[in-house]
């Protein structure tokens, strides 16, 4: 079985963000980077599938500049067999369709049986790329999965719907699935596996070699949301804040009555 898992490197969402000089994306300096949280579940599920079927080859793919290799190494240390880095220093300028076209272009003649992606990235959050890859490759796509099971060429999954309801879906492989948070418990790479990962194959392909499609939309401007909240801000010593809060709750609510 051939398995592909597509991951993205994103900034830590607890960071403070500001727009870059061109105003078309966030300023990438002074940010800590990590694996997109949704993709951690994809990587884990891909590794579990490999463990289940035994005879499988698991490739992790990531698009971006040199720095994304750090995140790819984590995926390799978790258990992916090889890495394909699509080198593209300006990948943030590509819209989801252009990103999907790069992945589809790479995957087209590789006969992957199962392709995993996250439901969405934490930074752009479009939830488009996975489904678009599937459509470009003519594969069925099961999205938003919180349960995944593979049995002899069939994927059975549960989609997470609003309000906690789940939709039961299945399809035949080859197929693509997009992973929702909570699908499994992503493992932490162990030290021996981190060492082993250094020896794993990690090839770079320039994005220009894959012939990406043009973006179909453009970012005009990036800015913090206009502050709508006129909430009161309390700062200072915890004990003083606690007194102020109790006073406010007595005044503005009936819960302490």
């Amino acid at each position: 079985m051939k398995i592909l898992v597509c991951i993205k490197q994103v900034p830590d969402m607890e960071s403070k963000f500001k727009a870059n000089a061109a105003g078309d994306w966030f300023d990438s300096s002074d940010l800590a980077w990590r694996m997109n949280e949704y993709d951690e579940y994809s990587v884990e599920q891909a590794i579990q599938l490999k463990g289940q079927v035994g005879d499988a080859d698991l490739t992790v793919l990531c698009i971006g500049g040199e720095q994304v290799k750090e995140t790819m190494k984590k995926a390799l240390a978790m258990g992916c067999d090889r890495g394909v880095h699509i080198l593209d220093e300006q990948s943030y300028q590509r819209d989801p369709f252009a990103i999907a076209s790069l992945i589809a272009s790479f995957a087209r003649d590789k006969d992957f049986d199962v392709i995993f992606t996250g439901l969405q990235s934490q930074d752009r959050g479009s939830a488009q790329v996975g489904v678009m890859v599937a459509e470009l490759l003519g594969l069925p796509a099961l999205t938003t999965l919180v349960e995944f099971a593979y049995d002899n060429g069939t994927i059975n999954g549960k989609r997470e719907l609003e309000g906690g309801t789940r939709g039961k879906v299945s399809c035949k492989t080859p197929a693509l699935v997009t992973c929702q948070l909570g699908l499994n418990t992503p493992r932490y790479p162990t030290l021996p596996n981190i060492m082993k990962a250094k020896k794993k194959e990690l090839i770079s392909i320039p994005a220009s070699d894959l012939g990406a499609s043009d973006s179909r939309s453009q970012s005009l401007k990036l800015a913090p949301p206009e502050k709508k909240g006129s909430g009161l801000i309390l700062e200072g010593e915890p004990a003083e804040i606690a007194d102020q809060l109790i006073r406010i709750l007595k005044e503005k609510t009936t819960v302490l009555a």
Binding site: L119, A127, Q128, V131, R159, E160, R216, S217
Partner: peptide
């Protein structure tokens, strides 16, 4: 809607129609 139904169907439409998609 940007819902489990909408974010599943929208990219399929965008690819079929060679259309830009703008999410959420």
């Amino acid at each position: 809607s940007h819902s489990s139904y909408g974010w599943d169907l929208a990219p399929r439409l965008a690819v079929a129609l060679n259309a830009a998609q703008i999410s959420e």
